[in-house]
Every structure is written in structure tokens, then in C-alpha cells.
Design a protein around this nucleic acid. Structure first.
Lengths: 151, 151
DNA sequence: TCGCCCTCTGTATATTTATACATTGAATTG
DNA sequence: CAATTCAATGTATAAATATACAGAGGGCGA
């Protein structure tokens, strides 16, 4: 069996099963007829750009099996900020919330869902959320709370 | 320094720098005043749900620093504004920077990379970048500089 | 105040992953 | 046909990461 066939099998396994180690992957591949060593799998994983995280191996955009939110509860603002929030900066009545790249949209959505009185409105870029507050004082209050949520 | 402060520092480092190993992360943290062992960082990484892949550590949705665009040098703000910037308008502490269609993102990124003290944050639309400044005075200063760069 | 519990962290080491070096086999070239 | 080149892989081990065990310190309840 060829290398590309094995790569396909690896992708299928990572997409459908929880793979916690290269040895576990090796055992699952043996059941499919691919018998290679851990060293080869290490190279395969590197070539397939797979990631290893707390839930095992996954594809670069995070869609391996059991990525993390099995519970479809809309993430609370605490969860979202704890996960994607980096820092908050204040300018007069505006807060600039810096997030990880590409995460501004869900963060802004979570803030909107929360119906916070100090929030007049939000605008999301790619890694920045602008939060408009009624005045500078309430901006300060909200900044402190957001800083706590970020942790 | 507390654990949550260290976690924030780790998130910032992962978001902005290529972290290839826990030892490398450890060295960068020492420069920021956090001195812990590899064992502690291993636990931190697990608690922060960070992934390790071919490009180093990343957040669960795959956006660490240098995920794939190898051209590490961000184009200078002079280049970008000379090329895409059209005009700047000021309102209190806000600057509205008009660009050519579709160029707001790279312009915003160039501004972010420059680490300008007068910039609290930026948000990019399609052909408009909103720049939040700490106050009206510094917004004026920045507007003048941006106008010079646009030409 | 004391005892207990919990969190956090370090040390040492177990486990896992990455890679230097070597081998094999297929394809290509002269 | 022989020599060369290259990709793929295994072996052994270096490097990196995870964790068992233990200690320290703070908070809390009796």
C-alpha cells in the first residue's frame, strides 16, 4: 500500500476517531493494513499539518473528532473571552478589545447577546472589537469587568 | 505574578510570535518576568487548550502566529498608505482612514504592527479603517502624520 | 489558633515525538 | 546493463512533553 493511501487513512481516522498518540494511531492503522513505525507516522503527521492538542490530533482548522464543544450551549461571554480575549484598552467612551486573529466576530456576538447596559454597540474587525459605551465612566466599569473575564 | 497573568502572557506570545517548543516559550516568558518550569508550562498549555503543530503552538481554531504566510516582514506603514491610503478624517478621538476598495485589512494590519502609541486599536471594513486614539489631541497628531504618509 | 483542603509549582522521570543515520527499492540516465 | 539518484522507511536515540509525587502557602471552618 502506498504512502498516499496511508495518508488518506490517517485523515479519515483523525476526522472520525479520537487519536491521543502516535502509538494509538499506529495501532488503528495496523487494523487497516498499514504497518509502519512511529517515526514514519511522525513524518506523516508533519506532512499532513496535523495538530496535537488536549483532545488529541486534529486538522489545522480544528475539525478533528471531539474538537471541544460537544455541548452546543452558546458559549457564554466568560467562555469566549477566556478563550479568545487578549486585552482591553480604553479611549474615552470606547473600549478596544483585542482578540486572537479571526475571533472578533464571535466575541462581538457574545457581547451583543449579553445585553450589557454599558454597551451601546459593538463593531468587529478581524482581531479587534470596538465597544462603544454611553460615557467614559461606564467604559471604565465595563473595562474592569472584561479584564476579569479575560482572566 | 499570578497564574492568570502568566496565562494572558502565554496567549499573547502564541498570538504574536512563533513558539516552537515549551522551552522556547519558557525563555520568552522569562523576558516578561514569568519564571516557571517546563512542567508548569505543559500544564498551562493543556489548560489553555493550545495545539502543537508543524508551525508551533496555536489556538484551537488554528490561528497562531505565522500560521502560513512566511513573508514575516509586514509591509511598512509608509508603503501601505502610499499605495492604498486615500484620505484621513478626524472626529474627536477617532480617525477614519479611507483606502482603496478592499485594502482596509492590510492597512489595518500594517498600523497594528507599527505599535504606534497614539493608536489604541483599529477596525477594518472594506475600504475604511477606523482608528481609535486615546484622546482628541493625539488623534490630531496622528492624523497629520498619516496625511504625510499618504502624500 | 489549628487542622484540613485546595491550588500551584518543582523535581524527577515516564512517555511521546522528532530526527540523524543508514538501508532498500524504484526510476532514470548513460 | 550498470551506476546514480531519490523517496520512503526503519533503527536508535535525542529532544520534547506529560505526569507521579511531594512540598509550600493560602483560605476556610471548627
Amino acid at each position: 500500500m502506498s504512502k498516499t493511501e496511508r495518508h488518506n487513512a490517517i485523515r479519515e481516522l483523525v476526522a472520525t476517531a479520537a487519536i491521543g498518540s502516535q502509538d494509538e494511531l499506529r495501532r488503528k492503522l495496523i487494523r487497516r493494513g498499514f504497518d509502519v513505525t512511529q517515526a514514519t507516522l511522525s513524518r506523516d503527521i508533519h506532512e499532513l499539518h496535523l495538530y496535537k492538542g488536549p483532545d488529541g490530533y486534529a486538522f489545522p482548522n480544528g475539525n478533528g473528532a471531539h474538537t471541544d464543544d460537544e455541548d452546543d450551549r452558546a458559549p457564554s461571554i466568560n467562555d469566549v473571552l477566556g478563550q479568545f480575549g487578549l486585552k482591553v484598552k480604553q479611549a474615552l467612551n470606547q473600549l478596544v478589545l483585542v482578540t486572537t486573529a479571526g475571533s472578533a466576530q464571535p466575541v462581538a456576538l457574545a457581547i451583543d447577546d449579553e445585553d450589557i447596559p454599558e454597551v451601546v454597540g459593538t463593531i468587529a474587525g478581524d482581531d479587534t472589537v470596538l465597544i462603544i459605551c454611553p460615557d467614559q465612566k461606564r467604559a471604565s466599569l465595563l473595562r474592569e469587568r472584561l479584564e476579569e473575564m479575560i482572566g
